[in-house]
Amino acid sequence: MEPIATALTIGQLAAGVGVNVETIRFYQRRGLLREPPRPPGGIRHYSAEDVARVKFIKSAQRMGFSLDEIHHLLRLDEGMQCDAAAELAAQHLNDVRTRLQDLHRIEATLAKLLEQCRQGDEKVACPLIAALHEDEVGAPY
């Protein structure tokens, strides 16, 4: 991949980091990315710092952080507050582990219902559909 220039248009920034122009605008509306000033009669230019910031946002999203959490992490990064960032990450890890437990429970329930469907008699209601009607699938919601 070629190095990205330091005076980029919004389109060049978006293409350089692999997102849509509307994604850049969305990040700006959410306060995750600055909107550079527009010179009179000119176009806005983005810097290498903006490239790094969008890459950070995308990386954090891949880790499952919400945009609100990413906003908080970006503010912490500006102040080098590792303890606070670690606390946020620990909370996120706890949330991920809880979701994994929920997914394992859902997986086990679905596997059980699917097995009942396969062993079922065509003359009785499908166990999966019956369980969904009765809200017995054990979902965490």
Rank of each mutant, 00 (worst) to 15 (best):
Q119M: 06
G79T: 13
S47A: 15
E78F: 03
K58D: 09
H104Q: 15
L100F: 11
D102N: 10
Q81S: 11
A131P: 01
E115H: 06
K112P: 01
D95Q: 13
R53M: 07
L76R: 09
E69H: 08
H72S: 09
H92D: 08
K112L: 03
V96W: 04
L110R: 02
H72C: 07
F56M: 09
G42S: 07
E107Y: 02
K123Q: 14
I129H: 01
L76Q: 13
H92M: 05
R53C: 07
E122W: 05
G79L: 12
E136V: 06
A90R: 15
M80F: 15
A85L: 07
G138W: 01
I106V: 13
A131N: 04
Q119P: 00
Q119E: 12
Q61V: 07
L103P: 00
D102I: 01
R53Y: 10
Q119L: 09
L113K: 00
E134T: 03
A52H: 12
L128N: 02
R97Q: 15
L88C: 10
L76D: 08
Q61Y: 09
E49S: 11
K123A: 13
D77A: 12
C117G: 02
Q116E: 14
V54W: 06
R118F: 01
A60R: 10
E69R: 07
S59E: 14
M80Y: 15
A85V: 09
R44L: 04
D135R: 03
A60V: 10
G79H: 14
V54S: 04
H92R: 13
Y46Q: 05
K123P: 02
E122L: 06
A108L: 03
Q119S: 06
L128W: 00
A60D: 12
L128Y: 03
D95P: 00
Q116G: 00
R105V: 03
G120H: 05
R53P: 05
H133P: 00
H71W: 10
I106D: 02
M63I: 07
C117E: 14
D95M: 06
E134W: 01
I57M: 04
E87T: 13
I57N: 04
Q81G: 00
Q116A: 12
D68F: 03
D102L: 01
D121E: 13
A90M: 10
L67G: 02
F56K: 05
D121L: 03
R118Y: 03
H72Y: 11
D68G: 13
L93D: 14
G64F: 08
L110A: 01
I70T: 14
D135P: 00
L103G: 00
L74W: 05
N94D: 14
H92Q: 15
E87N: 10
R99S: 07
H71V: 07
D83G: 15
